[in-house]
């Protein structure tokens, strides 16, 4: 039983890491209907910039600040340089544009910082801690705590501030928002900046976990099942989807893996997502349109 709990909790905590990437998607998708495939390369860009600054002798917080600034500039440039010109285009056009942007960002990161693998040390020891007979990773706990703080901050932003309320209005009905004088472009700028910040946090945690390398941008692929399960338009859904993916892939690996072979972890979430698509296409928390009858 203890072992089961250990696997379950370990999986849940790992799932939080997926959620962090998924949240970045949700923010941009909600506010502008763009499925931003470049989210993964933004995560990579953030991690790589941060680690390269550290290696060049920056202190932790000044590297953090400089990386944050560069993420804001990057997000602003994508919104301003690419997506603003594609307003009102069909979703597939926007998606293709972000796909292109993701390659540009990866190339740019490589050009700036080189292609070697970096280790990233955040100063959090990854030791097993024991809680009532269950062993947990202290790094996972730290990541989960960070994600919780991030979600709390975002939900305060959405519910308590004018910019957050405007943002929800834009997500609901962009034309109506425009008609009451909301500056859509300012809102999109803010959303992209926030998504840039989220990808910085995700990049640091993922970078510390996996090492900073180009495969980091592939975490975007693990965020897909999270989004399909949780729903594309709900931050809560991204969290729950991440937990489900994390827990189920670890449990499947440990309990089903021996029966049908290892490596289950890598594909199990996609099967789960496929089932969700068949049964509940909007995801668990996807915003279904309110319809009056």
């Amino acid at each position: 039983m203890d072992f089961f709990l250990e696997v379950l909790i370990g999986g849940l905590l790992a799932g939080v890491m997926y959620s962090m990437v998924a949240i970045g998607f949700v923010l941009i998708f909600k506010a502008s209907g763009v499925f931003n495939f470049a989210q993964g390369s933004m995560v990579l860009f953030a991690a790589l910039t941060f680690v390269s600054l550290l290696e060049r002798g920056f202190a932790f917080w000044s590297a953090f600040a400089a990386t944050l600034a560069s993420m804001l500039v990057l997000a602003w440039a994508i919104e301003r340089g690419v997506l603003r010109h594609l307003v009102n285009r069909p979703p597939i056009t926007l998606f293709m544009a972000t796909l292109g942007v993701s390659f540009i960002i990866e190339g740019l990161a490589q050009l700036l910082w080189g292609a070697q693998v970096h280790g990233l040390e955040l100063g959090i020891k990854d030791e097993p801690l024991e809680f009532g007979g269950v062993l947990l990773s202290s790094f996972d706990l730290f990541a989960a705590g960070t994600a919780a703080a991030l979600v709390l901050a975002l939900s305060l932003l959405f519910s308590r501030t004018r910019i957050g309320l405007s943002l929800r209005a834009v997500a609901d009905d962009p034309l109506a928002a425009l008609s009451v004088g909301i500056r859509l472009q300012r809102i999109w700028g803010v959303v992209w900046a926030v998504a840039g910040f989220v990808s910085l946090v995700a990049g640091l945690l993922w970078g510390a976990r996996l090492g900073v390398q180009f495969s980091l941008s592939l975490v975007v692929l693990k965020a897909l099942p999270v989004l399909i399960i949780g729903g594309f338009s709900s931050i809560g859904g991204a969290i729950v989807g991440g937990l489900i993916v994390g827990a189920s892939e670890k449990l499947a690996e440990v309990y089903v893996g021996p029966l049908i072979g290892d490596g289950l972890e890598n594909w199990f979430p996609y099967v789960l997502a496929l089932l969700f698509l068949l049964v509940r296409p909007a995801g668990l928390f996807g915003e279904r349109a309110i319809e009056r009858v």
Binding site: R162, R168, A169, D172, S179
Partner: peptide, 17 residues
């Protein structure tokens, strides 16, 4: 074109921003 997922008062507030 109300904002369907905002309540009535939030709709009005957005109009004033």
């Amino acid at each position: 074109h109300c904002f369907p997922h905002l309540d009535v008062e939030e709709n009005l507030r957005v109009g004033a921003f």
